[in-house]
């Protein structure tokens, strides 16, 4: 726990050192998550009620499309971060970090970004759904189940999307990383 907290503090500080990239990444995630959740909230109210049993695949296709976009977004941000931190990862391995330490460090950073994105996105979704519902008769703006499910799903997506770049980070050759500076 101590190590995770330390990684979190460091990740926050590193993100603050590159505010442009951080804001862009968080906004992209928030926008994606907010739009996904907001629209799904309405889609849930409009479509789910009208669909009969046996047509769930249509909903899965809609949700799957949104999740694929978030997966690619988180993967892109994490992969970019790993590339930017190649030298640092090389240094850490040279002074004693094991592969699992590097894996944890990268994944904590990615999950933290996703958490901020989820928080902002859910706020945006609440506002967006309220606006949309005002235009549609009989559709509520808050669907707790959708919001909870989306948050859980996105947390899982963040873990999956950060796994590959994190694995790549553990394969950084410290001698190459330090030579390329």
């Amino acid at each position: 726990m101590d190590a995770v907290l330390r990684d979190l503090r460091y990740a926050v500080r590193m993100l603050l050192r590159t505010p442009g990239v951080t804001v862009a990444a968080v906004l992209a995630l928030a926008l994606g998550i907010g739009a996904t959740t907001g629209i799904l909230s309405v889609v849930h109210a409009v479509l789910l009620r009208s669909l009969g049993w046996g047509e769930e695949s249509r909903l899965v296709a809609v949700r799957g499309n949104f999740e694929a976009q978030n997966l690619i977004g988180i993967y892109g941000v994490t992969a970019y971060g790993v590339t930017q931190r190649t030298r640092e990862i090389g240094v850490r391995i040279a002074i004693g970090a094991q592969r699992r330490d590097v894996l944890r460090m990268v994944m904590v950073g990615a999950v933290k970004l996703a958490a901020v994105g989820v928080a902002l996105g859910l706020c945006g979704a609440l506002i967006g759904a309220r606006l949309l519902s005002s235009q549609l008769y009989g559709v509520g703006s808050r669907d707790p189940l959708t919001y909870a499910a989306m948050s859980a799903l996105l947390a899982a997506v963040a873990l999956v999307a950060s796994w590959l770049p994190a694995r790549r980070a553990t394969r950084v050759d410290p001698m190459v990383a330090l030579r390329t500076e």
Partner: peptide, 17 residues
């Protein structure tokens, strides 16, 4: 990790710390 300490020519301190 247990046996060796390493000093680099370029220092390689972590700038964010």
């Amino acid at each position: 990790k247990k046996a060796i300490g390493f000093v680099f020519q370029q220092y390689h301190l972590l700038d964010g710390l």
